[in-house]
């Protein structure tokens, strides 16, 4: 599918791309690029129930195997983030992005 320029081979925490567990997208910095491993909606601490959060994330295209890239960050606490998901850009707060495990 879509290829992007400027993809970083390393996650910000230094975990290599082939790590099986992955990191939450909510911790990724601007410029991070990776692939969604799984959704862990129960861990996000969102005001939504795990099922509702997961449904909404899927509706916006966050499913396993989708390629994501963090394009922009807000000014206060680098939050929210604008994430390219395949060929759509979605704005999401880091709190909810914690539910998206990427590598």
């Amino acid at each position: 599918m879509t290829e992007r320029n400027g993809a970083h081979p390393q996650s910000p925490s230094g975990i290599p791309l082939d790590a099986p567990s992955g990191i939450p997208l909510g911790l990724a910095k601007r410029g991070y690029s990776g692939v969604i491993q799984h959704l862990a909606a129960g861990n996000a601490g969102s005001a939504l129930s795990a099922d509702e959060l997961e449904s909404r994330l899927i509706e916006l295209g966050f499913v396993e195997g989708a390629r994501v890239e963090v394009l922009h960050e807000g000014i206060v606490g680098r939050d929210p983030i604008a994430v390219r998901v395949e060929n759509v850009t979605i704005a999401v707060r880091r709190r909810e992005a914690m539910a998206i495990i990427v590598a």
Binding site: G45, S46, A47, L48, L53, R56, L57, L60, P80, A82, V88, T89, I90, A91, V92, R93, R95, E96
Partner: peptide, 10 residues
């Protein structure tokens, strides 16, 4: 209450 999520297509 915890703040509600913000999810929006750009």
């Amino acid at each position: 209450y915890a703040p509600a999520p913000f999810m929006l297509e750009l």
